[in-house]
Amino acid sequence: MRAHAYALGMIETWGFPALVAAADAAAKAADVQVVTYEGADAGIVTVYVIGDVSSVQAAVDAGAEAAKRVGRLLHSHVIPRPDETVPLMIQKKFNQQNAARYDAPKQQEAEQSGVDIPTVSELQGMTINDLRKLARSYTDFSLSPQEIHTAKKEDLLRLLEERRNEGGEPTA
């Protein structure tokens, strides 16, 4: 297994305000990138930062101090040159969290370029993930983002077909 040339830093807090303070302090303390955060259970949240080893260490130290001031720091840790599978795991989490943010501009570009909204038969041929992305592209869709996330394919198809028949277009 190969190792990456950068480091991975983690700051785990209890409570979101402490996490935000930690991420802000970490980003301001050194040349690092705040990649994502992850919530566990009972208010435990972790923020992930990457950069060169010394920058990540400085950022994690600053973030840990900020978390202590604002709330409760649980743990902080730096992994220098992590194995290549570790960043892939975090990147997958980052991609899942930000899929809607990146897919909305793509949908808007498609609309501006004259691409039509899928027909009923095209909708039926789409995967559940594609249907969810399309549903999220409507600002006033009848389901909340959480309901879209857990909706069955049949329900999304029915609602999207109704929406298409009403003449609604994605607006995100």
Results as ranks from 00 to 15, higher is better:
A30G: 09
G168M: 07
G71D: 04
D61R: 15
T13F: 05
M1G: 14
W14Y: 12
M1I: 10
V115L: 07
R101E: 12
V53Q: 06
L19A: 07
A25Q: 02
D116R: 12
H149M: 05
R132L: 06
N95Q: 14
K153C: 03
P87L: 03
A23Y: 04
A58L: 12
L143G: 03
L88C: 10
Q57V: 14
T119Q: 07
V35P: 08
A40E: 08
Q57F: 15
D24S: 15
V70A: 07
A59G: 05
P80E: 06
E65D: 15
I90K: 02
A110Y: 08
A25V: 08
I117L: 13
D155R: 15
R101Y: 09
A151K: 01
T85D: 14
D52C: 01
T119E: 06
A58P: 02
A172E: 11
A135M: 02
V60H: 03
Q124Y: 11
T127R: 09
L160I: 07
T171M: 05
L131S: 03
L123E: 02
A59Q: 04
L74W: 12
S137G: 11
F141M: 08
V56I: 11
N95W: 04
L157S: 04
A110E: 12
S113V: 02
G43H: 03
R72S: 10
T171W: 08
M1P: 05
Q91T: 13
H77L: 03
Q33L: 13
N98E: 06
Q108Y: 09
A26R: 11
S76Q: 08
A26S: 13
P80R: 08
K68F: 11
E12D: 08
L74S: 04
I117P: 00
P17N: 09
R81P: 00
E111D: 08
A42V: 06
T13S: 05
F16E: 07
D140Q: 11
S55D: 15
H77P: 00
N95P: 00
V34T: 11
L73R: 03
E154N: 10
A151Q: 04
D83Q: 10
Y102A: 10
A62E: 04
Y138V: 07
S121P: 01
S54Q: 11
S142V: 14
S142L: 11
K152V: 11
A64W: 01
A18Y: 13
G39F: 05
N98M: 10
I148F: 01
G71T: 04
G71C: 09
D52H: 01
G114D: 14
Q146N: 11
S144Y: 00
L143T: 01
D103H: 06
R2M: 13
E162Q: 11
E84G: 00
G71H: 10
Y6K: 06
E109S: 05
R101I: 12
F94E: 08
V47Q: 07
P145Y: 04
D130P: 01
P105S: 13
Q108K: 12
G15T: 09
E12I: 10
R72D: 00
D155A: 13
V45Y: 09
R69H: 09
E12K: 02
L160E: 01
V35N: 08
D24H: 14
